[in-house]
Design a protein around this nucleic acid. Structure first.
Lengths: 136, 136
DNA sequence: CTGGTTGCAAACTCTTTGCAATCCT
DNA sequence: AGGATTGCAAAGAGTTTGCAACCAG
């Protein structure tokens, strides 16, 4: 199943008329196997010495345009990025004390679209606070 | 009414044990009279030659800590800030074509807090897309 | 008075870009 | 082969910081 999805992604890249080069493979793998959204630096660390930081930026931006990757805003002063899994749209809650990152499997996009009469193309919806243990 | 609220804000500042200086007055006025959330640059422009950009940064950050101002993430590569009006918590939808900024008078904070068992301290929830006119 | 605050300049972090060398197809 | 892509280094944007001068209380 992951196999099939990967094929889709690689098709997406090739159909866009761009090459599936080594740096792109590396970045794709880093994002695909990550358990959490990664920053550009973290992606670079994972492909260290095999792709330049500038190429990481260029690649992630390309992937974002192709709809392979989405941006996650955790309010840390930089962006994080995660591989988009089909049918699994979600958001995050970050504990500012211990760094724990939890998923919220809900999104209010449809409601907002109806309310506003906008065609929503992108959105961020992330929450920061204290997790159960840290709140005590 | 605005008068009363301002008194509250100024009290808040003085009770924090900090001085209510000229740059702080200027930044407060800029934010208070703005119709939209402002970037640091825009605030600086509004107080131009009367407060340094570094002071604008320091002041806005202070105001944020004091709960006078909140951060608005519109995905433009920098932050915007707005004066917090009591009892008027809301979010934004930005049209990426014409720049129109519309309010959403709803927030899902309570639901998220219940779902996650986190004590939520801050959050961002902003949407980008095409407004009715630009979507045609 | 005097400690908090400011302005200025320099430093930092994150991100983008120009260009010659290199790699895919 | 030949255009797309890369690595490198430099430049841009946004933000923070050290410090002497200054100001509010």
């Amino acid at each position: 199943m992951t196999q099939i999805r990967m094929t889709h992604v690689i098709e997406k890249i090739k159909n866009a008329g761009v090459k599936f080069t080594r740096p792109r493979k590396l970045v794709l793998d880093a994002l695909r196997t990550a358990r959490q959204p990664l920053s550009m630096k973290e992606i670079h660390k994972r492909v260290r010495n095999r792709a330049d930081l500038a190429s990481v930026y260029r690649t992630v931006n390309l992937f974002q345009e192709l709809g392979i990757v989405r941006e996650v805003q955790l309010g840390e002063g930089y962006q994080r990025y995660e591989f988009i899994e089909e049918g699994r749209h979600h958001h995050y809650v970050l504990c500012i004390e211990c760094g724990k990152l939890e998923d919220i499997d809900i999104c209010f996009l449809d409601r907002v679209e109806k309310m506003t009469n906008f065609k929503i193309l992108s959105h961020s919806m992330e929450f920061q606070g204290l997790c159960h243990s840290c709140a005590e």
